[in-house]
Write a protein that binds this DNA or RNA. Structure first.
Length: 910
RNA sequence: GGACGGCUAGCUCAGUUGGUUAGAGCGACUGGUUUACACCCAGUAGGUCACAGGUUCGAGUCCUGUGCCGUCCACCA
């Protein structure tokens, strides 16, 4: 074994081995419990981010733990076609070759997109392999796969037949960059610095009278069809029913009254542009006002806006029209204003409320979706996300599911050629299409990507095809055990999957018929949902590609190993809190692996490894008369650690699991038990017993650590001779009680009292080391200690004298009756200890060293004293600096006294 | 406007039903290569637990209020 652990070779070799053994392949096996996870499918053309590392490491930990526990595990991988994102990327790539989407045409474009996907796609899956993810790769699914598409279209058709999918002319969120409608969830509100324009509208019927209106969007004035006031607003009561002249493209428009007007905002008068504002549209409907569109799909003004503005981009038009208003004397005021504007999440441009013909979905099973979470049939970790989830469901709006894109699942609706599309009697809706396709034309739109991924747990297991479901073990693996994802997609994905699961799994119910409680549980797509935190950079910003603040996980794997990365990220992943990334934590993970490697290496150098193939074999090497208190203590701690790990798994407290394992391994096992072993294994009598206990601890440690750091643990598992017929991957760590059982079978019972004694001994050793270190005697192994203690404690001290002396680095511990004077002392729970400064010391060397220390202090002290006597220093320096100087002076003076005393004692002896 | 989270050592964070003297890692400082490990060992320093009240024998922990930071939802033109 090399001195330092080098992950690279080990990781690649072991991953290949796991794949060739088929260790990750899932089979429905009724004799065992099922454990299943579906991966949140990443964008097929994406690359691995730190968020993926966190998310997938958690899933891998759970999958590997379940595999060890003997469950039949399915971790199902796959990728998402990511409609807008991928189409935009492909369009940009095509643009570089001088072509456009339109010039290629739909079929050719999609062909190019597939080529592009196949070329750039799948990178992320290979990156997950580097991370060690134990997915069943033979089951890899892509949302545009033929089978998956069938299931997406099938869901659409079923919901259509139920009357839940409908087509309609509605106000939607329009993205002028991507030229498509978006769902409400894809719009992000951003505070903007804009201008509030106050515009004057002259009253037609009363010359000289006018109304003032505040707006942030003067470019839409050309689409105004009315002004609205509040019906009870006394200020304009007499104007209701009269008309004003539109200040741009002048025509007379009515003054109407509507409750929706906020009297307190601006002037209390609202201009109504039904084509370009959601509220205005509603008011317009109520008052049967005309709808005048003045914007094109791409955000430029259209011909209706007039020759002066047609073709001009919306923000340029805003400027132009405001200037025009100013010239005409219609602009009363303009002032800076901060408001929230909706942006397209993908394209990052302001969205445009736009009236258009789209497909909408009324969500199915909303009530049941609330119920399954309220009743705990699906549990959220942390629990608090339940409130967010329920609040969203309470206020749920119909979902706009059509997208004006080419990359995606094309809507399975056909219209009779040459007939009016708005009449449903001219529609054909089916998965396979009409039998006489020549007479029909298919709807041009595709489905929102989330309208495919909401079926993920169902479709990846073969739904809705019976044969496919049987082959993929649907009944065995569904509902899946746990979903691991970020809270940022709780609405996009989690909530929708729950509704889809409830709707589509099992026998169908009529729309108005609630699913009975007893069959809810088998229909939910997953039982637990673990929400990870969001990874932020050192400044607390969300990691993103555009900020360039996300490290490349592959670089980190290269530098610290996959195990180091996994350990690091898991140790900073508290339950559901955002995570501030720091490379130092990854370094710590690497160091942990190295420590594990080295203590194992030490074990291989200490003695034979035979007899390690099972706990029974290991314990058979124990000689009862050689079992020491140290052995009992480490076993008690091991048991406590196992129990703690068990408890933390059930509540998904991964950082606590690692913390418990780290503490046991490093602070208890390495720092104390193995150090103590060094003396014991020199002695043939106790060697075998001591090594057996070491082996038992190491074995359990490796088993417990394996889900987190699979590579190094598997490597050490075989290097230390633990491997039997079973790989570490399928070997369960002992439960706490199992451990007690195993031990009592060979006659070892654990006495909690022993732990206290060992604890006291540790405390003593630490104190004695400290008293030595303070006097720069750390390396002197000849020092002697005197102590005063009662007879009970004295017996205890005598019992552990040898190991205390070894650990402290001292020659003797001698009991005295009287407290010696003039010696440095420490007080512990079991007695007062004095460092005998005169004994066992190289007097000449110590004396010259003391003199050197004193000489140095005699230089330092006057310089601090001078500083403190300086008036300017005292008045100008910050208080803490002055205090610091005073403390420094006092400490050095104290040191001087101590050293002087020690010196006088030393010289008296010489 | 509504909801949720955070505020603990210089930094990043643990702290699970309220209970000895509040912990870890990193960083700082001191000393150390005695054959597992310098990716290491031994030791030291460093905290008014955001603030103000309250409940209690006892509060980092529970309650009320305030402040700052962050997230989500809604949104008034």
């Amino acid at each position: 074994m090399d001195k330092a652990y080098s992950p690279r070779e080990v990781e690649d070799r072991l991953y290949e081995k796991w794949l060739s053994e088929g260790a990750f392949e899932a089979r429905a096996d009724e004799s065992r419990d099922a454990f299943s996870i579906v991966i949140p499918p990443p964008n097929v053309t994406g690359v691995l981010t730190m968020g993926h590392v966190l998310n997938n490491t958690i899933q891998d930990v759970l999958a590997r733990r379940a595999r060890q526990e003997g469950k039949s595990v399915l971790w199902l991988p796959g990728t998402d076609h990511a409609g807008i994102a991928t189409q935009t990327k492909v369009e940009n790539a095509i643009k570089e070759t001088g072509r456009t989407r339109e010039s290629l045409g739909r079929e050719e474009f999609n062909l190019q997109a597939c080529l592009w996907r196949d070329e750039h796609g799948g990178i992320i899956l290979n990156q997950l392999k580097k991370l060690g993810c134990s997915c069943d790769w033979s089951r890899n699914v892509h949302t545009l796969d033929e089978d998956y598409s069938q299931s997406v279209l099938s869901a659409f058709v079923r919901l259509f037949k139920k009357g839940y999918v409908y087509r309609g002319q509605r106000m939607v969120n329009w993205c002028p960059a991507s030229l498509t409608a978006l769902s409400d969830e894809e719009v992000v509100m951003k505070p903007q610095s804009s201008t509030l324009y106050k515009v004057k509208y002259n009253v037609v019927e009363s010359p000289g009278a006018f109304l003032e209106v505040c707006t942030t969007r003067p470019e839409t004035i050309v689409g105004d069809v009315a002004l609205a006031i509040h019906p009870e607003d006394p200020r304009w009561k007499n104007l209701q029913g009269k008309h004003v002249m539109r200040p741009v493209n002048p025509i007379a428009i009515p003054i109407i009254a509507d409750d929706a007007v906020d009297r307190d905002f601006g002037t209390g008068v609202l201009k109504i542009t039904p084509a370009h504002d959601k509220l205005d549209f509603e008011i317009g409907q109520r008052h049967e006002l005309p709808i005048i569109e003045v914007l094109n799909a791409d955000g430029t003004m259209n011909e209706v806006a007039g020759n002066d503005y047609a073709g001009i981009e919306r923000f340029a038009a805003r400027k132009l029209i405001s200037e025009r208003l100013k010239q005409d004397g219609h602009l009363v005021a303009e002032e800076p204003y901060r408001n929230n504007v909706g942006f397209s999440e993908r394209s990052d441009v302001p969205i445009e409320p736009r009236l258009s013909e789209q497909w909408f979905l009324k969500y199915p099973r909303v009530e049941e979706a609330k119920k399954v979470v309220r009743k705990g049939l699906i549990r959220f970790f942390p629990e608090r996300w339940e409130k967010t989830y329920l609040h969203w469901l309470e206020n749920i709006q119909d979902w706009c599911i059509s997208r004006q894109l080419w990359w995606g699942h094309r809507i399975p609706v056909w219209y009779r050629k040459g007939k009016v599309r708005t009449d449903p009697s001219n529609w054909h809706v089916s998965v396979s299409g009409p039998s006489d396709p020549e007479n029909w034309e298919q709807d041009e739109d595709v489905l929102d990507t989330w309208a495919s991924s909401w079926l993920w747990p169902l479709a990846t297991l073969g739904w809705p095809d019976d044969d496919d479901m049987r082959e993929k073990g649907f009944d065995y693996f569904y509902p899946t055990s746990v979903l691991v994802t970020g809270p940022d997609i709780i609405f996009f994905w989690v909530a929708r999957m729950i509704m889809a699961g409830l709707e589509f799994n099992g026998r169908s119910y009529k729309p108005d018929q609630l699913i009975p409680d007893e069959s809810l549980e088998e229909r939910v797509p997953f039982r637990n949902v673990y929400f990870t935190g969001i990874i932020r950079d050192a400044e607390g910003r969300k990691m993103s590609k555009s900020l360039g603040n996300s490290p490349d996980p592959l670089d980190l794997i290269e530098k610290y190993g996959a195990d180091g990365l996994r350990h690091g990220i898991m140790s900073i992943a508290p339950k559901g809190q955002d995570i501030r990334f720091s490379e130092e934590r990854i370094e710590q993970g690497r160091n942990f692996c190295n420590k594990l490697w080295n203590v194992s290496r030490f074990r291989t150098l200490s003695g034979s490894l035979s007899g390690n193939q099972s706990p029974v074999e290991i314990l058979s090497r124990v000689r009862l008369d050689q079992v020491m208190e140290e052995d009992q203590a480490i076993l008690i701690r091991l048991k406590a650690t196992i129990d703690e790990v068990e408890r933390c798994y059930s509540s998904y407290e991964f950082n606590s699991i690692l913390h418990a394992l780290y503490k046991f391994f490093w602070n208890d096992f390495c720092d104390w038990y193995v150090e103590n072993s060094k003396a014991r294994i020199k002695n043939e009598e106790g060697k075998d017993t001591c090594l057996a206990i070491q082996d038992l601890c190491l074995r359990e440690m490796l088993l417990l650590l394996h889900p987190f750091i699979p590579f190094i643990t598997e490597e050490l598992w075989s290097l230390l001779g633990f491997s039997s017929a079973k790989s570490i991957q399928f070997e369960a760590p002992a439960k706490g009680d199992d451990l007690i059982g195993m031990l009592s079978k060979v006659g070892i019972t654990l006495d909690p009292q022993v732990l206290e004694e060992i604890e006291a001994q540790r405390e003593l050793i630490t104190q004695l080391r400290s008293i030595k270190a303070e006097r720069n005697l750390s390396n002197n192994r000849e020092v002697e200690f005197l102590y005063v203690a009662d007879s009970e404690n004295a017996a205890l001290i005598a019992k552990s004298e040898k190991s205390v002396l070894e650990a402290v680095g001292a020659k003797s511990l001698r009991q005295v009756e009287e407290h010696p004077s003039g010696l440095p002392a420490v007080v512990t729970a079991i007695g007062s200890f004095y460092l005998d400064l005169s004994s066992g010391i190289d007097l000449e060397a110590e004396i010259s060293r003391m003199k050197k220390e004193i000489e140095n202090l005699n230089k330092v002290i006057p310089s601090i004293e001078y500083k403190l006597s300086n008036e300017k220093f005292l008045t100008n320096a910050p208080a803490d600096v002055v205090e610091g100087a005073r403390a420094q002076l006092a400490e050095n003076q104290m040191k001087l006294r101590e050293f002087t005393e020690i010196l006088s004692l030393l010289t008296a002896k010489s």
